[in-house]
Design a protein around this nucleic acid. Structure first.
Lengths: 148, 148
DNA sequence: CTTGACCTTAACCTTGTGGGAAGGTTTATT
DNA sequence: AATAAACCTTCCCACAAGGTTAAGGTCAAG
């Protein structure tokens, strides 16, 4: 199967498939004319990446899934743990978004919302003090003093 | 105030501040030696961007907020609407994440999770049929037949 | 023989930020 | 005065995860 068909079958774009190959995720054989050729096994690998991407796995996580898929000694508990780890990660994201949402609603509540230019939201956002304390779950935003 | 101080005050990095300026978000005056100088007003603008970023606004959305902040004829209802729009956007994200989470848990449930290499998760993810139907909120993935 | 569909590589665009090079300024210490 | 440290400047590269376009090779049909 050539790349166009593989793309259509998996729902990926041909460009993405080539990109995955350049990252060493899913190899392909080559025909005499240089075209990529995908065996049923490789197609499964592509499908794995496609499905995993849809449920939020990064390409590096897909790499891990692919290794487990291709490893005969793989334990299903490991796969399950990776999935549950992703669930935990999603929970964190949801928590963070929910916290931000609360902050935004608090901001909006303080704003009268009429024709006047006086806006409590802007006043809050431009105030150096009180910098929107919503719980930071992970230290991703925490680069506060890189130049101390 | 020079950029280092401005960075420390706002919690932004000097790099980011320069980047914002290159995008035309927050201008700066220059001292004789070429160093950037920030007036209290400009500092407020930087603070606005910093706070808005923390609650999930993109830089383009920050641009919009800055314009409202600097426009005397700005109506607070517009600011409020922008904030509420962001809330709606977050709601969508949460909904999508929740849907993915459900899918992942369903996958995990089907997996025994022991030492055996037989894994229902991998079987599900590599199956071309049944491609993880979770509701797509927006049509962002819909580039299926670019080579028809 | 040419058109059109398919394939190839390569390069640049995105978003927002970090890292670092190479060099100019200022300040503080020797 | 000299020198080192701490600033500042611009410019380029990198990341994820591809999208888009360019320039060209291959193949089948008309």
């Amino acid at each position: 199967m050539k790349i166009g068909q593989a793309a259509q079958t998996t729902g990926l774009s041909a460009k993405s498939i080539r990109y995955y190959e350049s990252l060493g995720l899913v190899q392909s054989e080559r025909l005499d004319n240089g075209y990529r050729h995908y065996s049923p096994q490789c197609l499964k690998e592509l499908q794995l990446v496609a499905s995993a991407r849809q449920v939020g796995f990064s390409l590096e996580e897909c790499r891990s899934l692919l290794m487990m898929f291709n490893n005969q000694e793989c334990r299903s508990i490991d796969v399950k743990n990776q999935v549950l780890g992703k669930v935990a990660q999603i929970d964190q994201q949801v928590q963070q978004l929910t916290s931000i949402r609360t902050t935004l609603l608090e901001l909006a509540e303080r704003c009268i919302g009429d024709e006047s230019p006086q806006c409590a939201i802007l006043q809050n956002l431009t105030a150096p003090q009180n910098p929107m304390r919503f719980t930071l779950v992970e230290g991703e935003q925490g680069t506060e003093n890189s130049n101390d």
